[in-house]
Design a protein around this nucleic acid. Structure first.
Lengths: 192, 192
DNA sequence: GTCTATATCAGGATAGAC
DNA sequence: GTCTATCCTGATATAGAC
């Protein structure tokens, strides 16, 4: 059963996805979570405490859905697994939209808020390494440095495309196409 | 000679680069521009008007510094010109930092602010087309659709890398390396 | 732990003089 | 066009009862 804190953090993720970190109002969060504002201040010291905890919550949750898989399906080839992992982030579902826009907000906020940088760097590193690992299974002969570079490019591209999608500059379908072509291209490159 | 409006917009770009869009206080902007808050409201209807005009200002300015060149130097090859155009955005100078962080902020804000989307889409399109044009001169035989896709990927990657740089997750030098490798790779791909 | 009610104040916006 | 002075809303945060 979700604790009160968790319930508030889930609501916070929804509000951030809807309004952004910048647009989060404690009162709106209270309404979304069906609690009073006072309770929020009881659990989290202040507004920026809410933000910190929510962003931690979101990056943990993103890690989970990225690696989750249907247990009955036949195992994916490394190539498919890589593609799926990356394209998962470009789907117009509530969950993905919520995580992606919160992630984008986190990244953007970190430019002006040192407190967020460490957590962000940690989460990015995990993410890049996961992709590098998948690439390594696609191209087992590629040197580690090349895998790392490809993973950095692919994840950075994914963030760029996500932002364009979320900001209404690019359709999801187009973003997906561009992303898979990039994956192919990096994989080819690594096979040289 | 810079008009008052321009003076305010230049100050706005500096303040946004320093504090972010959400951190922009009309009063701080007034101080930065050495004018009163009332004058700002005289020239721009309201806070979001300031934002819209600043976005326009920034994208025009980015267009300018991107294409500016030393008149005495011998002309660049298309390949060099492309590389220079893109790598110009990854330099740790005040001007570039200012434009890039303001640009990133505005992109992030547009996710939640419909007023910014149109201008953002326009500016992105111009930018993508400019890069597609440069790519076309590098690989004159490539079909237009492929040039467009490469340009979209390269500019999206650039935005992604810029954000990582500005948010302290990636060094500029690393970002530059990753970017030039991507340019090479897209150019090779187009030559097939 | 949770609520209702309210203090407090920052900051967007305007009135009116020059 | 530009300023000084000020209004006032909306948002954070707290007091105190249950």
């Amino acid at each position: 059963m979700a604790s009160r804190s968790t319930q508030i953090l889930e609501a916070a993720a929804r509000v951030i996805a809807r309004r952004g970190v910048r647009g989060l109002r404690v009162e709106e969060l209270a309404a979304e979570a069906n609690v009073s504002t006072a309770l929020i201040y009881y659990h989290f010291e202040d507004r920026s405490g809410i933000l910190r905890h929510t962003l931690e919550f979101i990056s943990d949750r993103a890690g989970r859905y990225t690696t989750r898989r249907d247990p009955d399906a036949e195992p994916l080839s490394p190539r498919e697994e890589l593609e799926q992992t990356l394209l998962l982030e470009l789907q117009d579902t509530t969950e993905v939209r919520e995580n992606s826009s919160a992630w984008g907000e986190l990244r953007a906020s970190a430019v002006f808020d040192d407190n967020l940088r460490e957590e962000l760097a940690r989460a990015t590193l995990v993410w890049v390494q996961e992709v590098a690992g998948l690439l390594g299974r696609v191209c087992p002969t590629a040197p580690a440095a090349a895998l790392a570079a490809s993973a950095e490019r692919l994840t950075a591209l994914l963030e760029g495309l996500s932002m364009r999608w979320l900001s209404g500059t690019l359709r999801v379908s187009r973003a997906r196409t561009l992303m898979s072509e990039a994956i192919d291209s990096e994989a080819d490159q690594l096979r040289n």
